[in-house]
Design a protein around this nucleic acid. Structure first.
Lengths: 129, 129
DNA sequence: TGTATCGTACGAAAAACATCGTACCTTTAG
DNA sequence: CTAAAGGTACGATGTTTTTCGTACGATACA
């Protein structure tokens, strides 16, 4: 089966880019300073490195920004869900030939998926229909 | 600086490396020629590029090879499942803070996940316990 | 037996990613 | 007014990943 990329096709975010997106998803539109501080809670990064990444992200059309103030505010162009769905879709296609149920089985067989999680999933499915 | 990975934890395969693994998973132990031909059904790659990648994979300990013949036979060190579980685990952690059920919801909300898939998953869950 | 074919080895170029230093502009406090 | 603090821009550099050219050994066979 052909993988027809849908019309709005943003480039795949890289690892460093994902880190930044996560901060924006969690805390909403932010300045570079804020994002950089958050990143530095996990690992050391220079301010200008984060700045550069966010500028690149903007060039790529993954972020947009409000430049009306000196402290630019960065905002993801696509909603968190949408981006994650895209990544998930790519993941399922690459590793499981698009079969969600196969991925599921792996998930369920994984010890790290707790009983609680499994119950959660069951309830979710029952409440679907 | 050196990246000391713990014994059990093989380095994350890169994109190009995954392509090769997939061929080996699907068709079993193979020669470079065979893998390269398969890859070229999808995109153009030079034979020596594939060779090099497979040599690198071997250095990294992701593949091993039988050199008893001139045409070396390459074999994944870890089983397909094990590697996939690792990748999946990483994926869930990165994008869903480790919550499998959150990932599920995304999967189920995705139009590309067919009714049939969903039925499959339900049956799977019911038959678990 | 020589030459075309098919294999491996490997360095190095190319491309993609990530990080940082420096220049320079604005704002703010004294 | 001026210096310090804090902001953006952006080229340069470092690193990792990917691709490829070239050298050279083994094999096949006319």
């Amino acid at each position: 089966m052909k993988n027809t990329q849908s019309e709005n096709n943003l480039p795949e975010p890289t690892k460093a880019e994902l880190e930044i997106l996560q901060v924006l998803w969690e805390f909403g539109p932010s300045t570079v300073r804020f994002v950089n501080d958050k990143l530095n809670e996990q690992r050391e990064v220079n301010y200008t490195s984060t700045l550069k990444q966010m500028q690149i992200l903007t060039e790529k059309g993954i972020l947009k920004r409000d430049e009306s103030q000196m402290k630019h505010i960065y905002i993801p162009v696509e909603a968190e869900e949408k981006t994650k769905v895209q990544l998930l879709d790519r993941f399922v296609n690459t590793l499981y030939k698009g079969s969600a149920s196969q991925l599921m089985m792996q998930l369920l067989g994984n010890e790290k998926t707790s009983k609680k999680e499994i119950e959660e999933i069951k309830r979710l499915l029952d409440s679907m229909d």
